[in-house]
Write a protein that binds this DNA or RNA. Sequence first.
DNA 1: GTCTATAAAGCGATAGAC
DNA 2: GTCTATCGCTTTATAGAC
Lengths: 189, 189
Amino acid sequence: MAHRIAKRDELIVALGEIFRERGFDGASLSVITERTGLGKGSLYHLFPGGKAEMAQVVLEEVSAWFEKHVFVPLRESADPAAGIAHMFNAVIRFFRSGRRVCLVGTFALNDTRDRFGAEIRTYFSAWTEALAAALARDGFDVEAAHATAEDVVAGIQGALVLARSQQDPAVFTRAIKRLHQRTRVMQRD
Amino acid sequence: MAHRIAKRDELIVALGEIFRERGFDGASLSVITERTGLGKGSLYHLFPGGKAEMAQVVLEEVSAWFEKHVFVPLRESADPAAGIAHMFNAVIRFFRSGRRVCLVGTFALNDTRDRFGAEIRTYFSAWTEALAAALARDGFDVEAAHATAEDVVAGIQGALVLARSQQDPAVFTRAIKRLHQRTRVMQRD
DNA sequence: GTCTATAAAGCGATAGAC
DNA sequence: GTCTATCGCTTTATAGAC
């Protein structure tokens, strides 16, 4: 087992890793107990709603991170291209250059989605819309901006799948580079 | 429960749907029993290796389908552009225009990958390489062909994630249209 | 707050009747 | 082939001591 986790922030990060690695169903309380060093008693004290509440809190934490490090820069950066560059850097950091998968993506694919439908839907729509707005501000016409934003967000998710299938993070970093390039030079006027 | 399933082919299809909808961990034998109308006795008679063998057989069936309807046309079509068009049509059909997710993609994202590593890796690498070869035959230079092939395969996977997160299959069909377009007009010279 | 003990249900898998 | 009954284990969750 890992060292005993003291701070709540640290605990939520650890829970996120477990859910990412095993999915909601595969993340059993015994695994969570072992990896966090906290007994069931402690876990249910901190999360009376059990596993569902743990996942909910992790999802909210992930959403808050993206809001702060991705969506706000996209929306508010004076230079939209700089906001977009900021997004790609944040994404590379967050997904550990392709060694980490997207928790929201994993949850979205199977029936776990039905438990957390609102959070999952909002995460992706907020991302797509913030990016589309930045692209539009950067000179894309509205239609092309929305299409490119969808392609980029989907491209990131797909690159995570591909990289993990090949156990090769470079697949992800290559894809990010190309997606970034597409936001710079494509489909103008 | 569904009607009792008679033919093995039909059974494998049903198993595929269950694994797609619930993931490997979420596809419990009780769910499988209920959805197929077959008791555990029958299931273990047909698949002595249990759930792992069921998933293995489904993965092989999916791989065989893609080999026949996607990879071979990509590799052997006299007109590479026709082979690529064939691929996109097959993909739309297979994923039910975005209402079905990719079984291999779901398995790839969490630790289920470790059980079926070889099949998962091969599925995506065979797809990417067959598409890259077709693009090269169609006039892309080798580097651009490989990059575009990765973008297309990742784009399809990501579009499935996005479509499901929004519960909107149109997200998928839109993405497919754009990806197809990119194989026609991009990065030539 | 954190632990141990325990409950009740569900899990994958097997045995054996038919 | 398909069923029912059952095994041993794990699951989520709770109770109660400290």
